[in-house]
């Protein structure tokens, strides 16, 4: 028996799933029956299909094989104070040497100084305190893969970064600080605007 065509409204609601092949057979047949008799909906379906088909040009890539070891090295490299006060971590990392390009720019430097003064206090959601040497993942897995992987420099992994390059999203971590958005109590970092540039300069690798 021929399926009863759906209405335009119902078809439009299901059209994306229909084009992507995600509908149940019964729904798909209802949509198809509608498309056979409705030119505007059928034309739209063809356009969606064309757009979807065009996306198939883009294949998947494999992450580098040593990527997980890099994660462990980063976890191992986390300073205890960073784990104690997770929201401060971007600021601390920036001060520890991630900010070369920021120091070269008055615009970004001004933004960072402002944000450095506005970082929130740790909250009840912060990660519990741990020391580097009792870090279970790093201790467990690094020891299981043998000592001295040597992936760490200055507490920050450099693998995957070009010389002189800085993980730029650290700066924006400031901007995204939950406390800034939600207007929690603000607290000053132990860095004054005057000393901030020095700290960046001294810390930059």
């Amino acid at each position: 028996m021929r399926p009863k065509p759906f209405s335009c409204k119902r078809t439009q609601k299901l059209l994306d799933d229909h084009v992507d092949g995600l509908l149940r057979t019964a729904d798909s047949e209802g949509v198809r029956a509608h498309l056979e008799q409705c030119t505007p909906c059928d034309t739209e379906a063809a356009a969606l299909r064309a757009a979807t088909a065009s996306l198939s040009v883009w294949g998947d890539l494999e992450p580098p094989p040593d990527c997980f070891e890099g994660i462990l090295a980063r976890i191992e490299a986390l300073p205890p104070d960073l784990l104690e006060s997770a929201p401060h971590s971007p600021a601390l990392r920036l001060l520890r040497g991630g900010g070369r390009w920021v120091a070269t720019s008055s615009v970004a430097a001004a933004a960072v100084v402002f944000l450095a003064l506005s970082v929130t206090t740790p909250t009840e959601h912060d990660a519990p305190a741990r020391t580097r040497h009792t870090n279970p993942v790093a201790a467990g897995l690094l020891s299981s893969t043998g000592p001295g992987l040597g992936l760490r420099t200055n507490g920050l992994r450099t693998n995957g970064l070009r010389t002189g390059e800085v993980r730029a999203y650290r700066v924006d971590d400031f901007l995204r600080n939950d406390g800034l958005r939600r207007g929690r109590t603000r607290n000053e970092l132990p860095v004054s605007p005057a000393s901030f540039g020095d700290a960046l300069g001294a810390g930059a690798r």
């Binding site: 070269t104 720019s105 615009v107 730029a168 999203y169 700066v171 924006d172 901007l175």
Partner: peptide, 12 residues
Amino acid sequence: DHLRARKYRAMA
């Protein structure tokens, strides 16, 4: 974050 920071960097 990365994309926005890249924009800042380009602006800077």
